[in-house]
Design a protein around this nucleic acid. Structure first.
Lengths: 129, 129, 129, 129
DNA sequence: GTGGTCTAGACCACG
DNA sequence: GTGGTCTAGACCACA
């Protein structure tokens, strides 16, 4: 399904969380689609099931998936509640990154171009595919 | 000067690095300006001087400041080479964030507006303020 | 594994960095091989674990090793980009040393011989030993 | 006469030592030539006379100059005594540098070329000019 | 078990 | 006064 970087400083469960979050955001994993069972994924990635479980728990905590005891884990159709808080945090991150890119010598035009490219790419992929 | 979040998952020295990096990027700390002495900042933040020093050393490694033993720590005037790698990483971060903002319901127009605001703000703030 | 000179002007962690760097350069420590654990090495050298960690972190910054929290520290397989700057610095050092050797009475022939010996030794030692 | 890098991590007296040593090695300062008086040099470089004095003391200790109380400091005509020890140290340094250059991707041919260029340059400059 | 963070406190070299 | 080194010892997260 995907690979983990064993050499990365970031813990494996965190890498898992980010990877799966990206799959959901980019609509590769559709709403209500079932995620691979913990043991299955653990087998494929040859890592400890506990690590998978920790990642799933984290994803559930962050509102990206929901778990049904005895059935499995599924992609949450719409993100829950307080998006504004999360959006605000993202806006800050975005501002920080833009500032740093300018500091490192990127031109404003480059940045705008980059953003627009990303926007059109995501717009194409997001609507019910 | 600024505050640290003692509860945060990211270590105090890392928070310090980010805070100071931001002050440099946003030209609040000018080139060759002296940073607060290790012990002084440690006193103000009521944390251990070693922690400050760890942050300063990290900033030095990343090319944002230089420390002269016996004299003090200062803002490095121009960023040292090799920005392309860092810029590439930032582009990826930026793409990821834009995707997530769209996923959480932000409109493309909002995002463009936000970026442009940031660009003009930084452009105004960077040259000799 | 090796010894440190407690009287030396250069700090212990710096000596450690140089020693380990040499072991990596001379292929004694192979790519992806695990370095001794921080506490283990600290025990063997009877110095503080923090000192070892400082050395390891420095080696990581310089691109010679990578550390994975909870797993260990390992030799980085290939050196990361940007070698030109480092190479330039080494060329200068080399020129300086040759000049000084001449000044101290070494003959040009001796120096050439010495270099060639080193070149053939390293060439023999580098590929899969 | 020359400049010091105030931003450098290496202490000013050490920079002075290296600079003057280079001038002697490259025969810019001739044997028995008098070095600038401590106060004069301190004035030119706008640094503390104590720093100059420390550098001169160090140079004397290393055998590059001699001081005549009340008269001044002079370039020592021939280096004193045990060159073999110093030469041995330099050979080791040289070997280390060659190894590292190879490790960083320099070709043996490049290194030989570099050495020969340095040798002919120094040979031209050394004999009693 | 691993690396990592943080503290408290001592000592050193530099200018 | 400055930054830097080192120790001793506690605690945490990860796998």
């Amino acid at each position: 399904m995907f690979e983990l970087d064993l050499r990365s400083r970031s813990p494996m469960y965190e890498q898992l969380v980010e990877k799966i979050k990206d799959l959901i955001i980019n609509n590769v994993l559709k709403p209500d689609e079932q995620l691979p069972a913990v043991r299955v994924l653990a087998g494929e990635l040859t890592i400890n099931p506990n690590t998978i479980q920790k990642a799933y728990r984290e994803l559930e905590h962050r509102g990206y998936i929901y778990s049904v005891p005895g059935k499995g884990s599924f992609v949450r159709p719409a993100v829950t509640g307080d998006n504004t808080a999360r959006l605000h945090a993202l806006e800050n991150e975005l501002s920080r990154i833009v500032s740093e890119m300018l500091f490192l010598g990127a031109s404003p035009a480059d940045i705008i171009t980059l953003i627009k490219a990303q926007l059109s790419k995501d717009e194409g992929g997001k609507p019910d595919d």
